Deep mutational scan, measured.
Amino acid sequence: MQRVNMIMAESPGLITICLLGYLLSAECTVFLDHENANKILNRPKRYNSGKLEEFVQGNLERECMEEKCSFEEAREVFENTERTTEFWKQYVDGDQCESNPCLNGGSCKDDINSYECWCPFGFEGKNCELDVTCNIKNGRCEQFCKNSADNKVVCSCTEGYRLAENQKSCEPAVPFPCGRVSVSQTSKLTRAETVFPDVDYVNSTEAETILDNITQSTQSFNDFTRVVGGEDAKPGQFPWQVVLNGKVDAFCGGSIVNEKWIVTAAHCVETGVKITVVAGEHNIEETEHTEQKRNVIRIIPHHNYNAAINKYNHDIALLELDEPLVLNSYVTPICIADKEYTNIFLKFGSGYVSGWGRVFHKGRSALVLQYLRVPLVDRATCLRSTKFTIYNNMFCAGFHEGGRDSCQGDSGGPHVTEVEGTSFLTGIISWGEECAMKGKYGIYTKVSRYVNWIKEKTKLT
Rank of each mutant, 00 (worst) to 15 (best):
R3Q: 09
V4L: 13
V4H: 13
E10L: 12
I15S: 04
I15H: 04
I17V: 07
L19S: 02
G21S: 13
V30C: 05
D33M: 10
K39V: 05
L41F: 11
N42C: 04
R46P: 14
Y47R: 06
Y47G: 15
L52M: 15
F55R: 15
G58F: 07
R62N: 13
S70D: 07
E76G: 15
F78P: 15
N80M: 05
T81E: 12
R83N: 15
E86C: 04
F87E: 13
W88E: 15
K89N: 13
Y91S: 10
D93I: 07
G94R: 14
C97S: 01
P101S: 03
L103I: 09
Y115R: 03
E116T: 03
E116R: 02
G122W: 02
F123H: 06
G125T: 00
G125V: 00
N127M: 06
C128D: 00
C128F: 01
E129W: 01
L130G: 08
C134S: 03
K137R: 14
K137G: 14
R140A: 15
E142S: 12
Q143P: 00
F144K: 02
K146P: 02
N151M: 11
T158H: 09
Y161E: 01
R162K: 08
R162G: 05
A164E: 05
A164Q: 07
E165I: 08
E165N: 12
K168E: 07
C170Y: 00
A173F: 09
R180W: 05
R180P: 02
S182Y: 09
S184W: 09
N203R: 10
T209D: 13
L211M: 15
L211W: 12
D212R: 12
D212Y: 12
S220N: 12
S220P: 13
V227Q: 06
V227F: 14
V228L: 08
D232Y: 15
P235L: 08
G236W: 05
V243P: 02
D249M: 09
C252P: 01
G254H: 00
K260A: 04
V273R: 13
E281M: 12
N283A: 07
N295D: 13
I299S: 13
H303G: 07
N304C: 10
N306A: 07
N306P: 02
A307R: 12
N310R: 06
K311R: 13
N313C: 06
N313G: 06
A317M: 03
A317F: 00
L318P: 00
E320W: 01
P324G: 04
N328W: 01
S329T: 12
V331S: 03
T342N: 03
V359N: 12
K362M: 09
V368F: 06
L369R: 14
L372F: 14
P375E: 04
P375M: 13
D378E: 11
A380H: 07
T386M: 13
T389D: 08
H400A: 15
R404D: 15
D405R: 12
G409R: 11
G412K: 03
G412E: 03
G412P: 13
G413H: 11
P414R: 01
H415K: 01
V419P: 01
E420I: 06
T422E: 01
L425T: 00
T426V: 00
G427V: 00
S430I: 11
W431M: 12
E433P: 10
G439V: 03
K440M: 05
G442N: 12
V447H: 00
S448D: 13
Y450A: 01
K455V: 06
